[in-house]
Design a binder for these strands. Structure first.
Lengths: 257, 257
DNA sequence: CGCGTGGTTGACACGGATCAATCGTGGTGG
DNA sequence: CCACCACGATTGATCCGTGTCAACCACGCG
């Protein structure tokens, strides 16, 4: 039924439950620290060299093995956290843990740029899905830099504003759209257009379907049914982890807006 | 049109649908511009006088009548918006509109501090529920101030970080908690402790129940049933718009966390 | 080969939405 | 002053979307 798979998965404390998930072609396993330059660009949108120098001065790069707890709801956040390389999941460790992921991240991306500004606890936990390179920026050290580089302040504001925007629509969709609409939306947002056929597009599932379901706030069973029912309608074609969108406009209509 | 409350409700384009909603005792009708000083404090957490002066220099205060559209998903946001006085609702104007509120604000509070930093459209619409005093800060004018007052950057970051935190938990709760749990949570967050009885607390509903339901992502019918079913369990006592929490610990248990 | 993991499928239960009728209340116009 | 009307809230009946539970398939690894 599927071609690309590869099991494994456990770990000691944390049931890691990563496996068989198709790798994105470019990135191989393990952690390979990209030129810091490009990391900072991805995180902050091309800051000036002087800014990067100062940031390097206060940032600690911390390599961590898969399964590590990167962020905990029970410890006050004093640092901004970013993922320089590797994959991680944000979610909530419920009691003993089956860790319940709500969002997965990869590559250079902010992990938590907000909590450190508040006094208190983060709203989520985070665990490393692969070996990762974590960037740690103490808020206390970052603050003086804002004075020296107002540009940096603007970029940080942009990061948070983007997140506010995104979370707002997530909350809205959870309230007002059903699972099919949310999934149609997800498909469109993750599709790459096909040059030759305007109504078609490709979607490659980089995560386990179970994790995609979690992002959408549904169960794996429901996602499976959605895939089948959309392909019965002729809107998509599913072959394992490769999905072809056959009718983009119709999908957009279902996504509702 | 209203004594500020009054019935009415319709209006031409926009079905205003506000009425009978119990007023918070302190605030009387109409708009009375508070000393700007206190407004800025509420918005930014006590900025220095020099900062306030500069902000006053670029901010425009715009009085608007009830029913005004304060923010539209279809116009790019170039300004940060704050409510200096009055009530407003954030939500989505669906097609022709029954305007669907998702969150209501009052008094001095940020209306949209995020969209202006991004290039694009806000994620929500906003309408004035009462006559309001709107504070408008053009992003282009605000940006130079960040250089002069790094303190200001920090305060804006704090505003956005708070919102990220709040939206994150909202999204989480929508995914994982049922209506009863979310409502129990809401009750606790809006309750004022009673000095004499530790297990009790008071909640005054300042909005129509229908709007509270909208915030929780449920229908008014369901909210009504929740109120009844919690009072049958002896956890609360409902008299119109006054709710007495009788068993805070039990409510906390239902809220689940 | 058997086991563990991930996915699919079906039967079923349940939370909440929807639809519809009723009550209460405050403002309005004759 | 009262009858009426509009809006909000409440209640009951019913429907539908998803979660839950359980069985089963497929694949890769030890």
């Amino acid at each position: 039924m599927d071609t690309n798979i590869a099991s494994n998965g456990v770990a000691h404390g944390v049931p890691l439950r990563r496996a068989m998930r198709p790798r994105s072609p470019g990135r191989t396993a393990g952690l390979r620290v990209p030129a810091s330059r490009s990391v900072w660009s991805a995180l902050l949108g091309d800051p000036a060299p002087a800014v990067i120098d100062d940031l390097e001065g206060i940032a600690a790069a911390r390599p961590l093995p898969a399964g590590s707890l990167l962020l905990s709801r029970h410890e006050p956040a004093r640092e901004l956290l970013a993922l320089a390389a590797g994959d991680a999941a944000l979610g909530v460790a419920h009691g003993d843990l089956p860790f319940q992921p709500e969002r997965t991240l990869q590559g250079p991306q902010w992990l938590d740029a907000a909590s450190a500004w508040l006094g208190g606890m983060p709203a989520q936990d985070a665990v490393a899905l692969s070996d990762v390179q974590l960037l740690v920026l103490p808020r206390a050290a970052l603050q003086p830099l804002l004075a020296r580089h107002p540009e940096l302040a603007r970029q940080l504001l942009l990061v948070l504003a983007r997140q506010v925007h995104q979370l707002t629509t997530v909350a809205h969709d959870l309230m007002h759209k059903d699972a099919e609409a949310r999934f149609a939306d997800w498909l469109m947002q993750h599709s790459v257009a096909l040059a030759d056929a305007p109504k078609r597009a490709l979607v490659t599932l980089h995560e386990r379907k179970r994790d995609i379901a979690a992002q959408l706030g549904i169960t794996p069973e429901t996602l499976s049914r959605l895939l089948r029912q959309l392909s019965r309608k002729g809107l998509i074609e599913v072959k394992g982890y490769a999905v072809t969108v056959l009718d983009l406009p119709a999908l957009r209509a279902i996504a509702g807006a």
